[in-house]
Design a protein around this nucleic acid. Structure first.
Ligand SMILES: [Zn+2]
Ligand SMILES: [Zn+2]
Ligand SMILES: [Zn+2]
Ligand SMILES: [Zn+2]
Lengths: 141, 141
DNA sequence: AATCAAATGAGAATGACTCTCATCATAAGT
DNA sequence: ACTTATGATGAGAGTCATTCTCATTTGATT
């Protein structure tokens, strides 16, 4: 139950938080903007303010329940933090987002930070390209 | 001369563009926001509108003269495109930015995109950490 | 059920960035 | 150098995502 997840991270269990969490869980789209979440909930008949959506997402992120990604040119997207860490590749034509994990890249990042005297705490890696030949927005499609 | 650089990429040679380009070249800080550039020019007595700074930077980027980076939590920063490609590591405490290039990471990115059926066109990699033990904002400093 | 801190919704405010448009400067032609 | 046409500029208005304010409501505890 989502209620427990909220309690576990020290957040009060409220209707807006539950609705947002379960939307993130049920949605087929893993990566969603605050606006999208707001719109989907509104369409579903819920009365949840946009400010509340932003607030809840910020808290979920601070609590480690979700992560935030800033793909270039787009709005910030959020996704549930489930399963192992991964990075993203985004189609610059149709916007499709795929995930990947590369052990070698992750290791190199540690080595590089150490060499530069940094204590690594986070990283953001996003690849951009075209998902040819299957891109729905390709001219030849 | 910067004038030639502008002509080479098909941009008219104007005073604002020259001032902006030469500020980017002379500045000790490699990575600057539009606001910073605007402020430095204003302080230097130049009358250059903020809109002009943004316009010029966008054109320089399109022409390949500069690159744009979006570090998390901060504004967009720009830097002259000189020398080989590199990625960045940012101190989350003091904001210091260091550059690095890792052949292995760059190669892996190609391999990964191919495997996923993407034609790679760009990527953004930024590491975040603390530049201990030399961080000027460290408590123990 | 009573209490009170915390959360919420609505709308105002913010901040980075872009657009509009009247004026101005550059580059090409004379 | 002078004219002209095209493109650039500055000032300020506009946009859009996100955050803030505050009166009201809700949830956890008693
Ligand atoms: Zn993801
Ligand atoms: Zn595509
Ligand atoms: Zn750099
Ligand atoms: Zn530091």
């Amino acid at each position: 139950m989502e209620s427990q997840e909220l309690r576990n991270v020290g957040l009060k269990v409220t209707t807006p938080r539950l609705k947002i969490l379960s939307l993130l869980e049920k949605s087929t789209e893993k990566h969603m903007t605050a606006e999208t979440i707001y719109r989907l909930l509104s369409t579903g008949g819920e009365v949840i303010g946009l400010a509340t959506v932003y607030r809840a997402l910020a808290q979920f992120e601070a609590a480690g329940l979700i992560t935030r990604h800033q793909f270039e040119g787009g709005q910030t997207v959020f996704e549930l933090e489930r399963g192992p860490h991964h990075d993203h590749i985004v189609c610059v034509r149709c916007g499709r987002v795929e995930e990947f994990y590369d052990k070698i890249i992750e290791e190199r990042q540690r080595v590089i930070s150490e060499k530069l005297g940094f204590t690594l705490s986070d990283h953001a890696l996003t690849l951009y390209g075209e998902c040819t030949p299957n891109c729905p927005k390709s001219h030849s499609a």
